[in-house]
Design a protein around this nucleic acid. Structure first.
Lengths: 155, 155
DNA sequence: GTTTGTGCAAATTTTTTGCATTACA
DNA sequence: TGTAATGCAAAAAATTTGCACAAAC
């Protein structure tokens, strides 16, 4: 997408790799590039397919390996949206948000509500639990469906 | 646990099976029994192991099959707590609650905060999304660890 | 030139499916 | 007795691992 953003995340990833003594391979940067080329949430296999289609040959094992590095460098976030399939999203210039998942078209919408932070600190204090993160997912039917009876996102 | 509760859930399951033309097999009731004998959240494999240890011989396929029926009869709930492993809990006489997961000992704590309902309706209205359910998970370190440096739940 | 990282394939883990046999209704 | 459910084993799906070769440093 944004060339400027891509340069920034490449720099972050480079620094991360150098700091941790990892090699800067073309595969790793091809994967980073593909991750930051999509606006959507993705899973490992669809990312693998996208990369294979468009550019460098990369194996699934390398995608899994690199996903791990991208998680550690905080360039992506991992989610579980009810299915036994890990989903990811890029997280540079990330604004805290949660997800609303349409059970019909599977499209993922993002939202943000400050009350979640309040719940987090209330509950953390109450139970002496030091909370590092949260995940809030709302499930239902999206407005596309409710309003039009059909859905632009479906399949 | 509670013999009275067990009778009630057996009745519910019996009615569900009859209503949907499913057979009342010993395996299905053995699985229901085991589910309601634990206070904890469980995954399919640990449930399978428990049943195999204690009673009737039941195959994994049957456990998966029965879990599906128990979900449909609303006698259990399904969760995804960040791992690629479905977790379940019994849900008869269920009080709405969310979960706090210790990243260290993996123990699951339950809590309830009414503000989550408010978020749900605010966001639903705002985005014309009809919300049927939510899942809120808080991740962090439990008080056992924070206060004592060690944890009763660990392993 | 070392070593780490990659690709491939094989192994693991979690879940699903096909089919012969069992047992509920 | 007829058919749905079970057990088993094999298939799928998602992920991890081992090892020989390739390529960073």
């Amino acid at each position: 997408m944004n060339a400027d953003e891509k340069k920034k995340v490449q720099k972050i990833f480079t620094e991360y790799l150098e700091k941790h003594g990892h090699r800067k391979t073309t595969e790793r940067f091809a994967i980073l590039d593909e991750v930051y080329s999509t606006e959507d949430h993705f899973d490992v296999d669809s990312l693998y397919t996208l990369i294979k289609k468009k550019k460098h040959h990369v194996s699934r094992a390398t995608v899994y390996n690199t996903i791990e590095l991208l998680l550690n460098s905080e360039l992506i976030m991992k989610h579980q949206f009810g299915k036994n399939l890990a989903r990811f999203e890029k997280s540079f210039a990330y604004k805290q948000h949660d997800h609303m998942i349409c059970e019909d078209c599977e499209h993922i919408f993002e939202f943000c509500d400050p009350r979640i932070q309040q719940i987090q600190s209330t509950v953390g204090n109450l139970l002496h639990f030091s909370i590092t993160s949260h995940s809030l997912n709302l499930f239902g039917k999206c407005n596309e469906l409710a309003q039009k009876g059909t859905c632009q996102y479906k399949n």
